[in-house]
Nucleic acid binder design. Structure first.
Length: 117
RNA sequence: UCGGUAAAAUGGGCAAUCGCGGAUGCGAUUUAUCGUAGACGAGGAAAGUCCGGGCAUCUCACGGCAGGGUAACUGCUAACGGCAGCCGAGGGUAACCUUAGGGAAAGUGCAACAGAGAUAUACCGCCGAACUUAUUCGGUAAGGGUGGAAAGGCGAGGUAAGAGCUCACCGGCAUAGUGGAGACAUUAUGGCCAUGUAAACCCUACCCGAUGCAACACCGACUGGGGUGCGCCGUGCAGCGAAUUUUAUUCGCAACCCCGAAGGGUGGCUAGAGCCAUUUGGCAACAAAUGGCGUAGAUAGAUGAUUGCCUUAAACGACAGAACCCGGCUUACAGUUUUACCGAUAAG
RNA sequence: CUGGGUGUGGCGCAGUUGGUAGCGCGCUUGACUGGGGGUCAAGAGGCCGGAAGUUCAAGUCUUCUCACUCAGA
């Protein structure tokens, strides 16, 4: 069912910010790097810049929902950190889903590509 | 009819699919896990953290000091700085509205500039005396000007001129009586009363021990050093053993605390001073009785996505996310409804 | 979550016991210089984060509120 695990420790986030690849979009920022766990691990960051608690929660939920939809198509060997930006709270999950798909396609992280469609 | 201001209420409902947290039930066994079903699952302010309480700990208990808070009175309450009623003061023609509202003859401080003078004073003026018209001495706060504030106000008597010096009225103070639960109101008598500031220090009365669920308890891991009767003082009582004859002190152990190391799990964790309706008591806040209702409890932190139907003018809409729990206060708030007021237009 | 601190000219800061707010840098104008820099002289720029209150008078005192920031864990 759940193909991904959440990143929790501060050191994991630090590692991705320093060594991972970064892709920016007006909607959000994606940091990622390969891991050997054979499973997707994901962390979502919503800083205080975005707004109050309601707006931060909203951003986090929308991003998680979008990622959940995209997740099955993803190669299960990545650590990913998704950072919300100030625009994120006004967007819908369907839009973010498209953005995420586009980013992962460009970076060659999708499963369909490795299978050779 | 339209627009605005203030206050109060409300802050859509039902259902489906995928996804999340999950009390609990069932099955399996390695008795603590796995699988499966799964009720239920953010607010009126959950916010700010401004007050009050529960609960927990501080090797015991009591009293005081320091420190902090509140300030008319009566009641409500677990308690409050909250609420209700009432009194005083201020504003208003009135209905009514506002109000941190003890003490300034217990003491200290401050009152810039202006002004003669700021808590004690004589600049101009008025009056008297000396007497050379000038000037000096004395009396005087009625008049002048300054100031936020100038010695209770105003009128009459009185006087050399004046002055509560005397008197009437008013204001304020003290004592006594009456009414009231009380703040206080009112009447009589007395004396003739020294500005403001206590949200300056302070005094008076009353209240408060401190720290907070990251409290605290248990399990697991880790094991070195330092200290100790609640911020201070006093009194009682100070766990066990040893040393010095006793007093008392010192040492060791126990207990607890702090620093270093370790920083994981379980409990605490949600039924509570609970909510609603009716009746009774009360002006009211509120209380009592009877009946009914009712599972958020996460721990990097659960409520999202898609869609249908109904109510509706519209419902995608505002402010906003529980983190131990309650009672208040304060602040934020789209749309709708109600009440009060204001403005414009139209009609009478 | 708990407990502190700070908001004052464009920037960085003073302003103790309430009495009409200053300093340095920067800015404008003028002088000295052939010009720049530098120095000297003069000047502008503030309702002290916001709203109430106490007081004769509030940057200062009290209450509420809005930002920013630090510490504990």
């Amino acid at each position: 069912m759940s193909d991904f695990v959440t990143l929790k420790s501060n050191s994991d986030f630090r590692r991705l910010y320093n060594r991972g690849k970064a892709v920016t979009d007006p909607a959000l920022v994606v940091y990622y790097s390969k891991n050997r766990a054979g499973i997707c691990r994901i962390g979502i960051t919503t800083s205080k810049k975005i707004g109050n608690a309601v707006e931060r929660n909203r951003s986090r939920r929308v991003i998680r929902e979008a990622f959940r939809k995209v997740c099955p198509q993803l190669n299960p060997c990545y650590d990913i950190v998704l950072v919300a930006r100030s625009k994120t709270k006004y967007l819908k999950s369907t839009y973010i889903e498209e953005v995420l798909k586009k980013i992962f396609e460009n970076e060659g992280m999708l499963k369909s590509e490795s299978d050779g469609e």
